[in-house]
Design a protein around this nucleic acid. Structure first.
Lengths: 213, 213
DNA sequence: TTTTTTGTACGTAGTTCTACGTATATATTC
DNA sequence: GAATATATACGTAGAACTACGTACAAAAAA
């Protein structure tokens, strides 16, 4: 039987190495290399002759996170199946990830046997979802769809600075902008994110891992 | 050479299994079993005839966290060496963990070789610390001594409310206090925690897990 | 018992934040 | 080429936040 290649994308090296060991121990699976973030993965894919069948992708990473990376993979390498791997069962995150094109979503507290099953299932049927994920999806249908809040580069830069004890005036200086422009950024974000004040901005940033504490 | 037993305490099963695989792959190390939290570990230790030499302990766990568990281990089973394993390099956490009696502190983004070295070193010399951790310790000494910043009940209640989009006036209402009293709480905390504004308070609360996001 | 700490509260002044309307040059899209 | 979006910026007014000094009763500590 053919050996299938699985690439692991995860920022904590020890974990990625450990998971790689696990995958290597499965029959007919092999981890040719490991990546620390989405950017690294894309670079590797570009420079490789052979593509992996599966990418095991952590959702929360610096530089290029799982969601964005998965979107790119889906577009550029549709033949690769992405399986999300995450600690959080946050509904919105799962939905975003699946929307981005992930073929499966595993929580980090599953048994290794589930990981093996997931890998096989994704190869055979094209997808793998635990009952849990299925339920979450169904529940979410009753809510409203997740608002597609794509933040712009400059907004992200701004929001990061908000998550410090700087005043807007100081942020303006750091970004080489007029304080009035900063007011604009703030107002736009308040509207976009349905929040009322600076604190809301900080909470949003932390919840969405825009800043690392 | 004797085989050394290492127990892994980590709430995410996949990770603990993966790390177990890693440890088993090292020469002369073996993982007899895995625990999902501190409580489980203590139960297991109580019911075992042989004790492990080393416990690899995640810091953030439900039920009984790494710090508390380590304290208990130190007291009840001083012959066992605890090595902390954590994603966060938060200074205060590291110090708490070492104070609790951990013989080493590893970040989850180290290479597996470092893990192996750490295990061996702890057996041989009784401790293992990366340069990083040593530096953090030294820095913390320069700060102030035992800044036992114990927050009072009411302050914690207040700080939690700050981590929402409420104004101080609204917080005062929720706490059945005058806004002026709230001003006092705020001023006291700013001084105590060496911060300048509301944002600082939110960041402190999140870093120190006073609020859950 | 005296002293200190804690929890509560007020006043004032200055700074920072927020809302909202407007404007203009440059890019992008249709 | 025209319409639209983006990044930049100004003005004004009011709300919210911050600093600092003060006060007093109850509780805790010395």
């Amino acid at each position: 039987m053919k050996t299938h290649h699985v690439i692991i994308v995860e920022d904590h090296i020890l974990l990625s190495q450990a998971i790689a060991g696990l995958v290597n121990s499965f029959d007919n699976f092999e981890v040719p290399y490991i990546c620390k973030n989405g950017e690294e993965l894309l670079t590797q894919l570009k420079n490789s002759n052979t593509l992996p069948e599966i990418v095991l992708m952590d959702v929360n990473m610096p530089i290029l996170n799982g969601i964005e990376t998965t979107k790119i993979i889906k577009k550029e390498y549709p033949q690769i199946s992405v399986i999300a791997l995450s600690v959080e069962g946050n509904d919105e995150t799962i939905i975003k990830m699946l929307k981005a094109g992930a073929k499966g979503y595993l929580l980090k507290d599953v048994e290794k046997e589930v990981l093996e099953t997931a890998l096989k299932e994704v190869l055979e049927t094209g997808y793998y979802h635990t009952k849990n994920v299925a339920n979450i999806l169904i529940n979410s249908l009753n809510d409203e769809g997740p608002s597609e809040n794509k933040l712009k580069e400059r907004e992200i830069e701004f929001i990061k600075l908000v998550c410090s004890e700087l005043t807007y005036k100081e942020i303006a200086e750091k970004m080489f902008l007029s304080p009035k422009t900063i007011d604009g950024y703030r107002d736009t974000l308040f509207q976009k994110l349905h929040i009322k004040n600076k604190i809301g901005l900080v909470l949003y940033a932390i919840k969405n891992k825009i800043v690392n504490l």
